[in-house]
Amino acid sequence: MPRREITYLQGIREGLQHVLRTHPETVLFGEDVAAFGGAFKMTTGFLDAFGADRVFDTPIAESAMLGAAIGMATQGLKPIVELQFADFATTALHQLLNNAGTLHYRTGVPVPLTVRAPCGGGFGGGPFHSEELEAIFCHMPGIKVVYPAFPSDARSLIVSAVLDPNPVIFLENKFLYRHVKEDVETDIAPVPLGCARICRPGTDATVVTYGAMVHTAIHAAETVAHETGAEVMVLDLRSLKPLDTQAILAAAATGRVLVLHEAWRTCGLGAEVAALIAEQAFHHLDAPVRRLTAPDCPVPFAPELEAAYRPDEPTVTEALLDLLET
């Protein structure tokens, strides 16, 4: 099988192209996505390839975009909505939580809707272009949340998200868009929603993480292995809801768990993972579950402040060394 290197952005792009090509009931819309190709050039060329009735720009109206997408999803289409930044989901949360998330429960009518939401910091986006809102999304019944870390997973999971009969929020880490590359096969391997993946094996400790922090964790684990010989497992959650609880509990068998995310700490996903392990895998633990997260403050702009805000390789390495000595 021939292989070639693609970026994370290319992965999502190719997955979108695949699903638009193979499923005529898909439509893609959002702000600046058509002729302009999107703020991150994710959809460059899509307008020409798929036509103006399937790829189109909308007014700056997140609630109308998501509301219209819900209406479309109930009438045979599979809409893919691009939020220019995940941060802007907050102007339409009621459409996600109350309309999209409740419709099937209330009426039995599926809502096959995918919301693409570029998120995360590390590039000077400041408070309103860097937010990680996955905990808010995961709190909503009836919604699925996906957050890939690798180009291959991004390519596969966007296809799974679009074809799922439920509303799926597909979080795309902006920092990873062009920073992460991977050799992939030509064919898109199916990856189901709700399945985590061990992306670095290890027996001495576990990092449970997702998104950009997966790569930070892998680098930190390499450093730890080099310095101490300890082997740290890195579990990439890939889907945040449904959460792969079996994989998390199995990964906790190393006895030492660090949960890592670049989202805020209080009521973040780390709290959920730590609680799950405490409830169901306490007997495995040799040390308390640790959380390494962003602090509970708005995402700061200045590089010095953002560097202090966002977990990075040295802080993860330090946390792992500390955990291994506990």
Binding site: G67, A69, I70, G71, M72, T74, Q75, L77, N99, T102
Partner: peptide, 25 residues
């Protein structure tokens, strides 16, 4: 007939999108 939610105005884009989808078909 769409089932309303309590958030006023929220159903108006929904019916709009529904009409767009049906007309596309």
């Amino acid at each position: 007939v769409y089932p309303m939610i309590s958030h006023l105005g929220a159903m108006l884009p929904v019916v709009t999108g529904g009409v767009m989808a049906r007309r596309r078909r």
